[in-house]
């Protein structure tokens, strides 16, 4: 899309594997508010490749089994090797929306020592997501004070 090649385009784009990409696409729209911007569907009606946007972020999604490595967390006893984090404008509203669609909440929204409110959630195939909103902007010193034993460096 215009945003795909423009200067404001997301340069890091995570891609997720789903056993049922068609169901995943609908669910990510309804529960998390992602918007489909590209969908490629084969003769059999199965999505081969799709891209979705959220704000200035973008994800790709596709099926499993097209090579040795792509598999769904469903086939790994729910284990994940990474997590997608999304920063949202209103984390409580996002949480309520996801919950209303039947998302499996792994951790209720909670204020963190670094100033953000975060909740954790699994999608229907067990991909692990976190959504957060910055409630308080804290200095590194404030964070260190709030969580003794940690050294905080850099600009968060």
């Amino acid at each position: 899309m215009s945003e795909k090649t423009g200067s404001a385009a997301a340069q890091v784009v995570p891609a997720l594997f789903y056993d049922d990409p068609n169901a995943a696409l609908d669910w990510l729209e309804q529960a998390f508010g992602f918007e489909t911007c590209l969908r490629v569907t084969g003769d059999d009606g199965v999505i081969q490749h799709a891209e979705m946007e959220y704000g200035n972020g973008r994800i790709m999604l596709g099926g499993t089994g097209w090579s040795d490595f792509p598999t769904s967390p469903k086939s790994l006893d729910g284990k994940n090797t990474q997590c997608i984090h999304v920063q949202v404008k209103d984390v409580m509203a996002h949480y309520e929306r996801a919950k209303a669609v039947g998302a499996t909440i792994a951790a209720e929204p909670e204020d963190q020592f670094y100033g953000d409110r975060i909740y954790r959630v699994f999608d229907p195939e067990g991909h692990f997501w976190t959504f957060g909103q910055t409630m308080r902007v804290l200095s590194n010193a404030d964070m260190e004070k709030a969580s003794p034993g940690l050294k905080v460096e850099g600009k968060g």
Binding site: M1, C37, L38, R39, V40, T41
Partner: peptide, 10 residues
Amino acid sequence: MSASVTVAIT
């Protein structure tokens, strides 16, 4: 079923 491609823009 039908082979299709979808794109979107705002």
